[in-house]
Design a protein around this nucleic acid. Structure first.
Lengths: 220, 220
DNA sequence: TTCAAAGTGTAACATTTGTTACACCTGAAA
DNA sequence: TTTCAGGTGTAACAAATGTTACACTTTGAA
């Protein structure tokens, strides 16, 4: 699993140069050099941190020096906004700059004040968190399906507009296998079995669902 | 996977009988009988719906009549609060009452007004959503680990306070297997293998981690 | 204490998926 | 056109997990 990247881009318009930028807002923008440790696992998260430019990587590092679960985040995106208001408000990961980076930091109190005084900002914040939740829910639903055929079925039923209609995916087999978290040859095998079973047809990356009912039976 | 039930209980204090209950709030409370269809898949979600009493089930129903992914929700909890502010604000499931049920409904505009006028309510709302996001993130992390031993390692490392220290789980093997989404005998097999490998020890439901470093190597 | 129900350990076998390897196809660049 | 890289199909085998079944243990209530 690689891309957990919903649309955070609207946060970009929290920007100094913006006409709407609140003049009395307490904030600061801090630059970091390449390969600086920006946040450490366990750090208190008491401000909204928005990555304004550059990119960072997050990694969970263990005492023994092993690391796991690397994710790369590109500007503009807030960093761990869910942790700002959660009961357990500590960073779950290390955050390190991959290049020169600017981070806008708005203290929690100020975020609250900004939200109460600016309903549009509040809505934006809420919408983004809501979209994130939806994204996570979908992803969870996909990963909860245990068989590869089930995942394929879920995915195709979501993509298709109408039974029998042909549509093309913007991912190749390798990317799709990655998205599902399975091995590429296993995906290919399942796909060709589903073709043989008459559930779907594939012609040159053009997919079509022949038996939607049959697909739904795979979703258990 | 059964229990995706984080702590929503604080929402309970949005309650008519509460002294703090805002007198000018537009809302209504609607009762439903047993087995009524409360929301339909695809319905617009333009209000905060809080289940005040009773319990409901959510199910995704397909055209062919098959159903999948049943979840039971008990009061007090908001219903699909993530969908209120998301771009795709339609119910993803059918919601049906399992018994007599009361649902408090606050229109979206009113929620926004309530939040701007009552920072404590806003914080509560934000905190709950944040906790939900964290919960989903954890769950996703767990499900992303493909091997059973990896899941066990992840879980035990989270639970343990200190290497070598004994701790007990409040789940039995069956519940644990359910939580991991694996078969119970498979879990038992993995556990006993890990005991044999000297990673952990189990005595009468009392677990202890003998080799934390070894466990971390399973998390890939 | 006795007994039944729930929980646990484990074995044999089936099924699914991963791994590795290789042939083929296709499209774009030289 | 040639060539090469990326993408696809698929086969043989390995590994992990699920399924079913059953015996043993623990627990708690009668």
């Amino acid at each position: 699993m690689k891309k957990i990247d919903p649309e955070w881009s609207q946060f970009h318009n929290i920007n100094e140069n913006d006409n709407d930028f609140p003049t009395d807002l307490k904030y600061n923008i801090r630059p970091y050099k390449k390969n600086e440790l920006i946040f450490r696992q366990g750090d208190l998260c008491d401000a909204l941190n928005i990555l304004m430019s550059g990119s960072v990587k997050t990694e969970m590092i263990t005492e023994s020096g092993n690391l796991m679960g690397i994710e790369i985040i590109k500007a503009p995106r807030p960093l761990a906004p869910a942790f700002l208001f959660s009961d357990n408000n500590r960073f779950p990961v290390d955050v390190t700059s991959l290049e020169e980076v600017e981070i806008l930091r708005i203290p929690k109190d100020e975020v609250i004040r900004l939200m109460t005084s600016r309903p549009d900002f509040m809505q934006q914040f809420l919408t983004h968190n809501a979209n994130r939740t939806q994204f996570l829910t979908n992803r969870l639903q996909l990963l909860s399906i245990k068989t590869i055929k089930g995942k394929i079925a879920h995915f195709l039923l979501e993509q298709m507009s109408e039974e029998g209609k042909i549509f093309s995916l913007n991912r190749n087999q390798t990317e799709l296998a990655d998205f599902f978290g399975v091995a590429r040859p296993s995906l290919a095998r399942s796909l060709s079995e589903m073709v043989q079973e008459g559930l779907i047809s594939i012609k040159n990356k053009e997919y079509s669902v022949l038996n939607a009912k049959g697909l739904r039976e795979l979703l258990v």
